[in-house]
């Protein structure tokens, strides 16, 4: 019994850390711009396909595939910001970028559908079938890699935000853009940096998800709904809350699968979302907004 609990905890952390990678990008962009990039899901999908393509092209070099997905994500982030968010922001509308990214998302999905077809791809990495046994527990090397890559990315992001000048400037821009400008910070540069980081994470998560999930042009879309729920549960724009909520949702999913019914996963997750909205509308770790006059 306890080994089942432990085994499912590992599975939950694997799924959860993937969700965290996807959700962090959403929350970073929201934190800085108070905007949502609906094409985020498709960067995940494109990352998965890029990793698939490069891995196969280089006869099984999955690590090169991961790097390619990361690079493609970063490039797409730059492109989406420069092509959509910057020009539409100059027009001064809040709603336009949101709608434009929905358009980009639909366009990308259909382009992938036309190019790659609706039949799921079997993305097997050299690590998918290597199993590590720890007593009664077992996990694939792919799962270890997922936890490792996610853990390292999250730690790097955290360190960047906490300890570097640029990371602190990024947090300043997200708290008060105009005042950040007064500090000599160019907010435009930091918004661009946010898009690049967020989308690189999305591409990366695609590379990690691809071998685990059903790889179709809609792979990202199936994850993004959960990622949105996680962003809300964690508190919009709150990095720590997003990490916690992502792992929590992963654990809930794996325990629901084990002890209840896999079909109930979405119901349980979204019940948690509703509960959060009712009880703690600002998210799990609400930032304390103390105001002094």
């Amino acid at each position: 019994m306890s080994s089942i609990v432990l085994q499912q905890a590992i599975n939950g952390i694997v799924v959860g850390s993937l969700y965290v990678l996807v959700a962090l990008g959403l929350t970073l962009i929201y934190g800085v711009l108070v905007q949502i990039n609906f094409a985020h899901a498709d960067i995940v999908t494109l990352g998965a396909f890029a990793a698939y393509g490069v891995t196969h092209l280089l006869s099984g070099n999955y690590l090169a595939g991961i790097a390619a997905a990361l690079g493609l994500g970063a490039a797409l982030g730059w492109l989406i910001n420069a092509g959509i968010f910057v020009p539409l922001r100059e027009r001064g509308s809040e709603l336009l970028p949101l709608i434009a990214t929905i358009g980009v998302s639909i366009m990308l999905q259909n382009a992938m559908l036309a190019l790659l077809g609706p039949i799921p791809y079997a993305f097997d990495t050299p690590y998918s079938n290597q199993v590590i046994r720890l007593g009664t527990l077992f996990l694939t090397v792919q799962n270890v890699l997922i936890i490792l890559v996610s853990g390292v990315s999250i730690a790097l992001l955290y360190g960047f935000m906490k300890f570097t000048f640029l990371g602190k400037a990024l947090r300043a821009v997200s708290q008060d853009r105009e005042t950040a400008g007064l500090m000599g910070i160019n907010p435009g540069h930091l918004i661009m940096l946010t898009f690049v980081i967020a989308s690189a994470l999305a591409g990366l998560s695609g590379a990690m998800l691809g071998p685990v999930l059903v790889l179709t042009p809609f792979a990202g879309t199936s994850v993004i709904v959960k990622a949105f729920a996680i962003v809300i549960i964690g508190g919009f724009g709150n990095v720590e809350g997003t990490i916690l909520a992502g792992l929590l949702v992963g654990l809930i999913e794996s325990y629901t699968t084990q002890f209840l019914d896999p079909g109930l996963i979405d119901i349980v997750v979204f019940a948690l979302l509703l509960l959060t909205l009712a009880v703690r509308p600002t998210g799990l770790i609400a930032e304390r907004r103390e105001e002094n006059v």
């Binding site: 000048f165 602190k168 400037a169 947090r171 300043a172 708290q175 008060d176 105009e178 005042t179 950040a180 400008g181 007064l182 500090m183 000599g184 910070i185 160019n186 907010p187 930032e287 907004r289 103390e290």
Partner: peptide, 30 residues
């Protein structure tokens, strides 16, 4: 505005506008 800061103009805005979720040290660094 960020280029004016580099030339030597600094503004203490109305209502102070410190970055509330950064520490005092981080505010000064910025």
């Amino acid at each position: 505005s960020h280029e004016r800061t580099n030339l030597g103009i600094a503004l203490v805005p109305e209502g102070r506008r410190v970055f509330p979720f950064l520490t005092v040290r981080e505010n000064l660094e910025l």
